[in-house]
């Protein structure tokens, strides 16, 4: 009797994924009826910060480029969106498109400038970018309204009802984030996803195989900035505010923490890391004011003990168990044993 590998066809898999996607959105949308306001609040934050972290998973875990500017890109999109929506009184849809357009342009510019740099220099440039965004938000008071920021950001108006604020934005977040995750998941399994992993592992080999590493890298930065930007717009919707405090460089560093804790090389690690960070800091801050210090300490321990993140260690464990079984089958197969 042969051990058959139960594999779905490609089309079937895509259909199944779409069904799971639609189901999860419906499940999420029904949560407000059964959960507390606080739970919905936390889930919202986990989702959009998870999305911001997933953009880091993409560029760092899959692409091998350490970036400390995700909050910067989120801020660029968030501010562009907020400025058009509030200061220029534009429509929601247009504001979103403008926000995304601006951030992708910034990503293109940044990607182009940094295209030939080493990973350390790239990281430094990303730190510079994050700081630039933060300080610009403080200094360009004419357009960003300085320290107090832009307030009163309204959500979309659908069928006469405007969905603004932490309660209502949940529905938008619960719609956009799963879809984004769906796209990112398909992206990393696509030829592009394979290419960036190849670039991460062996750049020279990729070049010699005929891949234009420079173009791949720029596209990676743009896509990463896009999803960070989406997260930034969602956050601006959520708090109905866009202010310099939301683009502090600390947030980009928190992003790194969430990415590493969850598992840099797994997209889901971004969501897991965001969940862990938000719940942990919420929990810890109830008992002590040293919450940042404890998280800092945990980060250091995590980097030594679980460098692949929680998901990484789980997969490693799984592989160790799974592979052992596989090898035994091979041996017994060679001996002529019948094996189920």
């Amino acid at each position: 009797m042969r051990k058959s590998n139960f594999r779905f066809g490609k089309k079937t898999r895509t259909m199944l994924q779409l069904i799971v996607l639609i189901l999860s959105i419906f499940i999420l949308w029904s949560l407000p009826k059964i959960s507390s306001r606080f739970t919905i609040y936390m889930i919202s934050r986990i989702m959009y910060m998870g999305l911001m972290t997933m953009s880091l998973n993409l560029i760092m875990g899959f692409g091998g480029l350490t970036s400390l500017s995700q909050a910067g890109f989120a801020g660029i999109a968030g501010y562009a969106f907020a400025i058009y929506r509030v200061s220029m009184k534009g429509s929601y849809g247009a504001a979103v498109l403008i926000g995304l357009f601006v951030v992708m342009t910034a990503g293109l510019l940044f990607g182009g400038l940094s295209v030939r740099t080493s990973s350390i220099v790239f990281m430094m440039m990303s730190i510079a970018l994050a700081n630039l965004v933060h300080l610009s938000s403080l200094q360009l008071t004419d357009i960003t309204r300085g320290f107090n920021g832009i307030i009163g950001i309204k959500g979309p108006t659908i069928n006469g009802k405007t969905y603004s604020g932490t309660g209502n934005t949940f529905y938008i977040i619960a719609f956009i984030v799963p879809i984004s995750y769906f796209f990112l998941k398909r992206l990393v399994k696509s030829p592009f996803g394979i290419a960036i992993q190849g670039m991460r592992d062996n750049k020279t080999k990729m070049s010699s195989l005929g891949f234009n590493v420079n173009v791949i890298r720029i596209v990676l930065v743009v896509i990463s900035s896009l999803f960070a930007g989406i997260a930034g717009i969602l956050q601006a919707n959520f708090f109905a505010t866009m202010a310099p405090d939301y683009v502090k460089t600390e947030y980009s560093l928190m992003c790194l923490f969430m990415c590493i804790i969850g598992g840099a090389e797994y997209l889901e690690g971004g969501l897991l890391g965001a969940a862990i960070y938000l719940m942990l800091s919420n929990f810890i801050s109830r008992y002590t004011r040293f919450d940042d210090a404890i998280i800092g300490g945990l980060f250091i321990i995590a980097v030594f003990l679980i460098p692949n993140g929680i998901l990484g260690e789980i997969y490693k464990l799984y592989n160790n168990l799974f592979r052992k079984r596989k090898m035994v089958s091979l041996e017994s197969g060679m001996r002529g044993d019948v094996h189920e």
Binding site: I120, F257, I260, R289, D292, A293, G296, L298, I300, V303
Partner: peptide, 30 residues
């Protein structure tokens, strides 16, 4: 105790030092 373990691994060093910076900032606030 810490940084010497990052010999030859710049990214690890950066991550450790980020964690350290959070600890020091909290101490300063205190």
């Amino acid at each position: 105790a810490l940084y010497n373990k990052a010999y030859g691994n710049p990214i690890l060093g950066i991550m450790i030092s980020i964690g350290v910076s959070w600890i020091f900032t909290d101490l300063s606030i205190e």
